[in-house]
Design a protein around this nucleic acid. Sequence first.
DNA 1: GCGTCTATCTTTAGGGA
DNA 2: GTCCCTAAAGATAGACG
Lengths: 110, 110
Amino acid sequence: MIRKKVKLAYITNDSSRKANYKKRKKGLMRKMSELSTLCGIGACAIMYSPYESRPEVWPSRTGFQQVLSKFKMIPEMEERKNLVNQESFLSQRTVKFELWGHKRSQLVAH
Amino acid sequence: MIRKKVKLAYITNDSSRKANYKKRKKGLMRKMSELSTLCGIGACAIMYSPYESRPEVWPSRTGFQQVLSKFKMIPEMEERKNLVNQESFLSQRTVKFELWGHKRSQLVAH
DNA sequence: GCGTCTATCTTTAGGGA
DNA sequence: GTCCCTAAAGATAGACG
């Protein structure tokens, strides 16, 4: 058996793609767990796929929320050019992000 | 050089822990990217650590939000024992996080 | 479809510059 | 602190039942 190297592209075969997803999802979850344990940090991940009826969340929905608790999402943020005001974080306890309609981002991708 | 096996526990040495974090974070980001590309799914991750002033987010603030848009984080969720109603995910346009305790937080894109 | 196997590929711990 | 190196540890593609 000769394994070809990973070609980084969309897997067109349905069953292969699904199998790949499930395996990698598992691996990713483990990695998240390890990172969290080894370094004592907060982390979470979401994977939304058509293979499952619900989004996969790590570490758990509860833990997920705890991590997301770091964020405050507010509509006004967009008006402020997506820059989160440091002060607002310090002074506010609740922030809401408007998730839809965010076409542009000031943040540059790496 | 004999490398000891990874002990899955909090790394007590500060510099080692930080170095470990940076390496694994990078790897994790790559894995997320690969999974997303290979399987064409939506995914995102957040890592909140004391080593960086801002939470690390993949894939980017925009992509992050797009994925999160699938979710509707509502207080009632917890009351429903963390079970998320799929319909509510898809029908809602706004996600609200109400969580707090954060001193300095900004989303950073990758 | 799913779980298991394992050869092979990828990640990374530890070190050096 | 950074970057690079390398071998050990770990992840996984493909095969199989």
